[in-house]
Design a protein around this nucleic acid. Structure first.
Lengths: 158, 158
DNA sequence: ATCCTTATGTTACATTATAACGTATCGATA
DNA sequence: TATCGATACGTTATAATGTAACATAAGGAT
């Protein structure tokens, strides 16, 4: 198994992920309902950007919900509380790798296999802050996404 | 009129924009057809992120095309040749402010009025390069978008 | 017991985007 | 000059993504 593009103990990474989320929910009085938990698990399991309808298909197969609002509500919850991120480039979603830590996420996204690595951005990239101050713009959210080819897919092509 | 969030001579800015594009097309043997030119003009005129169907409505009103593929083809052309950018956060499109210059665009986007300012990113932000090298990832495109409130909308609320 | 809040179930629809196939135009060339 | 290939446009249909709105359920506070 790989984290991002490298091997790792993914089972552990997943159970730790769910645990962080679970703890955070208890501490902050948030309800980690079955659908929400399952969507979080799915995102953690895949370690890549998943479309809402891909997730919905899985939920459907498991009898956990069959209509779009089910998955979009669960995703809203996960996004709002920082448990997952939306990859705007792909209209897809991925588990957060830094639950509970304030951060501006940045992503490396493989266009072949949709694998995603989340890296911490250098605090929202100073040039943005500078540009914003220069024009008196109030930044509320920053999207940083790099699309390309991951090492595995590069090897596969060669 | 404003460029981004400040006043400027927008007529000039627009005509210069079309001229750059037109010259680039001549030099590079690209066909700036009526629809393509008109879509470019529309993007330059608005100075904000426009949805494909907003553009299509305008084209329709002018008898230049009535079906989605018309506008998506024109946008493909403009994007491919660097005359326009897609704002992923909004599924919307905006004129490029640096035609003919190699650059990694970065955007400040007002969530109220959709005004867009394009700034040059500090060459794709070093931390991304670093992360990519660390994992042997080949970056092909970088998306950098900051969403927030522009000075005009802030004033309007106060 | 009732009410309020939060979450879910469901229908219907809105928005964004593309596949696929046909037509038109124009320059190259046999 | 006829035809061929390349490029762009016209049109129909449909895919993919996302939301509004209203009904139901379950649990806690008064």
């Amino acid at each position: 198994m790989r984290i991002g593009f490298e091997n790792h103990d993914h089972g552990k990474c997943m159970s730790r992920g769910i645990e962080s989320v679970s703890e955070y929910c208890v501490s902050n009085d948030l309800q980690l309902t079955p659908v929400r938990r399952r969507v979080m698990e799915i995102l953690l399991q895949r370690h890549r950007a998943l479309g809402a309808y891909e997730i919905l298909d899985i939920l459907r197969a498991e009898g956990l919900g069959s209509q779009p609002p089910v998955v979009y509500r669960a995703l809203d919850f996960l996004l709002k509380n920082g448990f997952a991120h939306k990859i705007e480039r792909c209209n897809a979603y991925t588990a957060c790798m830094h639950v509970g830590q304030e951060h501006v996420p940045a992503f490396l996204i493989c266009k072949e296999c949709n694998a995603v690595v989340e890296t911490q951005s250098a605090v929202s990239s100073n040039f943005l802050e500078t540009a914003a101050k220069g024009t008196d713009f109030a930044i509320e959210r920053v999207v940083i996404e790099a699309e390309g080819q991951c090492p595995n897919c590069r090897k596969a092509k060669a």
